[in-house]
């Protein structure tokens, strides 16, 4: 898997990769998935979900390749990607921190957690730390309001948090990440 940063503004680069993109091989899992969905109407969103599941985001090259396979204009594909909050154009950190900003968490101090995380990590919402370890995002109710305020790191949920508990939690992942 290659993880090149997409260069959205660079026209020349865009043209070159567009032709190249047609030749890049896709992982078998994705190829099978596309084959299965190719003829179903309304397949684009499902395919984009699969791409994101595999790469963690939607690499530009893959978007191009899909444009060719599905015979849909690239602009339409990007129109869909940018409409939906869930689809990401940049590679996320290895540990994705999602701070719940649902109503219950907000009332119980979710915002304080977010500010503290921004301080601790030195990044804003949507950012990724330089070492590529953490990225920060907000989400809506994760369904554990009873434990509010809640954050999620990848798929692990941490509830009843105070900002004092954050350094320790981050430390655990940092250690794991460096090993």
């Amino acid at each position: 898997m290659t993880h090149e940063k997409p260069h959205l503004d660079n026209v020349a680069d865009k043209e070159i990769t567009f032709y190249k993109a047609q030749e890049i091989p896709l992982p078998k899992e994705l190829e099978d998935f596309i084959a299965e969905w190719k003829n179903k109407p309304g397949n684009l969103i499902m395919i984009l979900h699969k791409v994101q599941e595999i790469y963690g985001y939607i690499p530009r090259k893959v978007a191009m390749k899909i444009s060719k396979l599905l015979n849909e204009p690239l602009a339409k594909i990007y129109g869909v990607i940018t409409f939906y909050h869930l689809f990401k154009l940049n590679k996320p950190g290895r540990y994705k921190i999602s701070v719940c900003m649902g109503t219950a968490c907000y009332l119980k101090g979710g915002n304080d957690l977010l500010m503290e995380l921004e301080n601790l990590l030195g990044i804003g919402v949507g950012g990724t730390t330089e070492d590529g370890l953490f990225s920060l995002q907000t989400v809506r109710c994760v369904g554990c309001c009873g434990l509010a305020p809640v954050i999620m790191i990848n798929n692990d949920v941490y509830g009843n948090l105070t900002k004092e508990k954050l350094p320790e939690i981050l430390g655990k992942y940092k250690q794991e990440g460096e090993e």
């Binding site: 994760v142 369904g143 554990c144 309001c145 009873g146 434990l147 809640v150 949920v157």
Partner: peptide, 8 residues
Amino acid sequence: MGTCGIAA
């Protein structure tokens, strides 16, 4: 074992 049970 719903989401919030598992989280806890």
